[in-house]
Amino acid sequence: MEEYIISLEDLKKLADNLIKEGTDLFLPSPDNSRFVRLKKADELKLAPEARPSDISAKQAAFPKCDPVLFYKRDKSTVELKDAEPSANQVLFGLKPCDAAAFGIMNKVFNWDYKDNFFNKRLENTLVIGLACTYSDDYCFCTSVGLSPVSETGSDIFLVRLSDAQFAARAVTDKGIQFVKKYSQLFAKGDSSKSKPALESIKGPARKFDSKKVKDWLDKNFETDFFNPVGDTCLGCGQCAFVCPTCHCFDIVDEDYSYSEGRRMKNWDACQFSLFTLHASGHNPRDNQAKRYRQRVNHKFKYYIDRFKEILCTGCGRCSRGCPVTIDIGSIVTKIGNLT
């Protein structure tokens, strides 16, 4: 793989070029709460030591509220207009647990019918990943097939060598083309520079065997294991909303006026009691324990059965943000120990 060296100054120049070309550039906000647009290139900061932003980067391809069509109503007719997908965007400094999520979601958005809202956005997105030196009690990327240095999902992958210097790997064709386009900013390098930096990254302390988790889930659908967490869970859905891989959505109409409006794909969550409620009043998941069982099974069993991927990148956001301190990492660790 081609490896380059780029200084922080040149990364800022790169950002400046991109902004001037009209590309939208996003990176974690200074308080690390969410992804925001970079307005001035010299404000570019790459922080591999920061915790994952509170809200994941999934909005880049799967926005919280995404218009899918616009309508106009007349006395007797309705006019429909397809929504146009997004402009070019570059995501800067994505942690491996964020970058890998796009490829995982890509499976469900394309397994039969193609969701072009997701696809166009992803197509228009360049992901610049960054090797992560952060870890806390909630992180478990190494238990779900990733690591703080995995390049999965990144088009270009950065490794911090010093405060002022980064190694850059062109991972995908898109990344290679990108480096070619801005070749005056990238100096030729080799892996001898990044290797010691990567080797010094330890990764999270928590470790469980996801294979064992699946083995147990395969055999234990009817179980009282989820009852305590069902009693605790508020069903607020924050875990799904901060998650980089949760992709359930609702379809909702929003009227602007009596005659105009738009139809939205809005994030939804399987922890909400109404999520599965039938028109008849019957609800196949009629208590919170069943809904939590669905969450764990979807992530660590169903998605693997269907798409051969774990629907989790181990970022720990759902646990860090949970108002009642439910920690999915410790729950699946417990499950892994049951087999």
Binding site: H247, C248, F249, D268, L277, H298
Partner: peptide, 24 residues
């Protein structure tokens, strides 16, 4: 089978039973 269905195209997750999308 009856299920709550939103997208109809195996994406939105509402009608999921195990790894099966009932709408598809």
């Amino acid at each position: 089978l009856e299920r709550r269905m939103k997208c109809g195209v195996g994406k939105c997750g509402h009608c999921q039973i195990n790894s099966v999308y009932v709408c598809q």
